[in-house]
Write a protein that binds this DNA or RNA. Structure first.
Length: 390
RNA sequence: GGGUAGGUUCCGGAGUGGCCAAACGGGGUGGACUGUAAAUCCACUGGCAUUGCCUUCACAGGUUCGAAUCCUGUCCUGCCCA
């Protein structure tokens, strides 16, 4: 492939490439480049937000380059302060390692196993002596660390910034030094961290990595970036039904962004927004499952939500274990058994009083209602959840 | 170390002895309307129980018939000074 074509392909979808001529020069070297992408296993799931960088990394792989996925088992314990207004909770190494395990599996839903290297940054950080840490820290100035806007904001608002938080960019940068990265990928919020990597590489006499940042995928709420802790995400290992359903809930306003970022294309004008959204949901679901699964998810979605036909919908089976058949007890039990959600009885009562609960298509508005023993039927809990009894 | 301002329910932020489970805003949840969209409107938003009870206002004690509100000590944070 001619270099210029490769260059164009790689730059597609990037928000910024620093610098383009350096990337061209690297590509012209004629050897596989070491392309770095770091993820911090702060939660067990990889979501669509992560998929943006991973897909770009995959593209590099397909062009013959080497993908280096850094699992930040060590940095995850610190927590990336990027875009944060409060200190992240610190995780134990054990939590992080267990998250890391499921991360790897999910990452290979996108990455090819060929030309991929997975590296834990604990590999070098764990072995570092305090002396080395000090030495590393002496390479940067406090002012450099504090210019970033999220820190500025916290200073302005009088919110604390703990000393360990400014270590984060330095550590991420050191990762680049350790693997001699040619390119580092990340979201736009990673620009600062990646640039620190360049500085450290220069200090170490290494050629500096090219920084390629991708747009940040907004979460389902359309307000903040997609993240586990905000609960506005779609995980890669979710069921086709959940994936499809969640994508159907995004706002019309958000749709063009999802088209652009996840499908790398422009949403064509005209057409009913709902149809465009179904197409989006269908294609993304198919990407992580199969076309057949996606089609089934869509069909299920349509019977369930468009036709509101709960009776023929594919619902989780609920077998009340307790003897109590009053509606509140049943709800609490169903949430726990079928959805792993702990609801208080007050909460369940509120749902009943709010008119969301239905038994066999009939609204149950009385919290004291008692369902007949042993009768089969569908119990609707809330907007998106229902179970089948019997 | 000194000075000073603070720590309230998911967040912001009222409340300075009883009428406080605690205003108001945001967020969230449920409902109406719809396209599981947006906007709008309504309700709910500590727990258990249906007129009540229990646990909450950094923590531990204390004063009071009665405290988020007063006192004492402790912990934590911002700012200023060293």
């Amino acid at each position: 492939m001619p270099e210029s074509h490769e260059f164009d392909l790689l730059c597609r979808g990037c928000e910024k490439v620093l610098s383009e001529h350096e990337l061209r020069a690297k590509l012209a070297l004629g050897r596989p480049l070491r392309v770095k992408l770091g993820v911090d296993p702060t939660a067990p799931d990889i979501h669509l937000g992560h998929s943006v960088g991973l897909s770009k990394l995959r593209q590099f792989q397909d062009l013959g380059h080497e993908a280096i996925l850094i699992i930040g088992d060590f940095t995850a314990m610190i927590g990336d302060p990027s875009g944060r207004s409060v200190t992240r909770p610190q995780l134990t190494h054990q939590q992080v390692l267990s998250n890391a395990k499921s991360y790897q599996e999910q990452a290979f839903k996108i990455l090819s196993r060929e030309r991929a290297r997975i590296v834990f940054n604990g590999e070098w950080f764990e072995a570092m002596s305090f002396e080395e840490v000090i030495k590393l820290n002496s390479r940067v100035t406090l002012q450099q660390m504090l210019v970033r806007e999220d820190f500025r904001e916290r200073i302005d608002k009088g919110q604390p910034i703990r000393a360990h938080e400014i270590q984060y960019p330095i550590m991420q940068g050191w990762d680049s030094v350790m693997i001699k990265a040619d390119v580092e990928l990340g979201g736009t919020d990673q620009l600062f961290n990646i640039m620190v990597g360049r500085d450290l590489q220069r200090e170490e006499g290494q050629p500096r990595q090219v920084c390629m940042v991708m747009p940040i995928l907004e979460g389902l709420d359309g307000k903040q970036k997609m993240s586990k802790s905000l609960g506005n995400y779609v995980a890669l290992n979710e069921s086709p039904g959940d994936m499809f359903g969640k994508l159907m809930s995004i706002s019309d306003e958000l749709m063009p962004k999802y088209y652009r970022i996840l499908l790398s294309e422009e949403l064509s004008a005209g057409g009913h927004p709902m149809e465009s959204k179904k197409a989006l949901a269908r294609r993304i679901t198919a990407r992580f499952h199969s076309e057949a699964d996606a089609a089934a998810a869509q069909a299920e979605f349509e019977t369930r939500f468009s036709k509101k036909d709960l009776a023929s919908a594919d619902l989780p089976a609920f077998t009340p274990g307790g003897a109590a058949r009053d509606i509140v007890s049943l709800l609490v039990e169903a949430y726990g058994q079928c959805f792993q959600l702990t609801k208080s009885r007050s909460d369940a009562r509120r749902l009943v009083e709010g008119g969301s609960v239905q038994w066999r298509g009939e609204k149950v508005a009385d919290p004291k209602a008692v369902l007949p023993q042993g009768e089969p039927g569908v119990l609707k809990l809330d907007k998106t959840r229902a179970v089948r009894i019997g």
